[in-house]
Structure formats: C-alpha cells, structure tokens
C-alpha cells in the first residue's frame, strides 16, 4: 500500500498536487524520493505534515499515512 501525498500552493507547479509513493518508511526517505522525482522541490521552502500534524523531525510512515507538503504564503 502506498503513502499518499498532497501538495499545496505553488509547490503544485513543481510536482503533482496529489500522488502516491510505494516503499517509503519515513519522511526523510519520502523527501529524498520526491527530490529525485521533482528536483525543483529541493530549492523550494515547505513544511511536512503527517496525518494532519506538522512534523519537524524524521517520522515513520505506515501504509495509511497521508503526507502533506505546505509552502509559506505571503499574499494579502
């Protein structure tokens, strides 16, 4: 079962706004895989949330995990 990933804001200009990855055990692995798939992501600023909780450290993922990538917004 894959891990589902939701991409927010203008990060969706770089990567698919919704995608799934197989065999990703934790968020560090997921980020590495994403940066290979979408190299421009490596230069972008974003925060990662797992199951609607923002995570600041490497976090293990299970087959039902939903991972969100959120960039900062500045517009007003």
């Amino acid at each position: 079962m894959p891990v589902n990933i939701i991409i927010f804001g203008r990060l969706a200009d770089i990567a698919e706004s919704s995608l799934a990855l197989e065999n990703v055990a934790d968020t560090n692995t997921l980020v590495k895989e994403l940066h290979i798939l979408y190299p421009a992501l490596a230069d972008a600023k974003y925060v990662i949330a797992v199951n609607k909780k923002v995570v600041n450290e490497n976090t293990s993922l299970t087959e039902n995990s939903i991972v969100a990538l959120l960039p900062p917004f500045s517009g007003g």
Binding site: A44, K45, V47, P72, F73, S74, G75, G76
Partner: peptide, 24 residues
Amino acid sequence: IFPDPPKEGEVLNCAEAGVLGALP
C-alpha cells in the same frame, strides 16, 4: 512552522502571482 523567511523571489506575492478577488 517556517523558522526562516524565504528569500525574495522564492515565493511569489500577489502583485506577480495573481489572485481571485473573492479569496481574500
């Protein structure tokens, strides 16, 4: 959430990126 500010140009603001009026 975002410890450090992004560099200018890394993220577009409204003047360049466009916005639908109802969203704000």
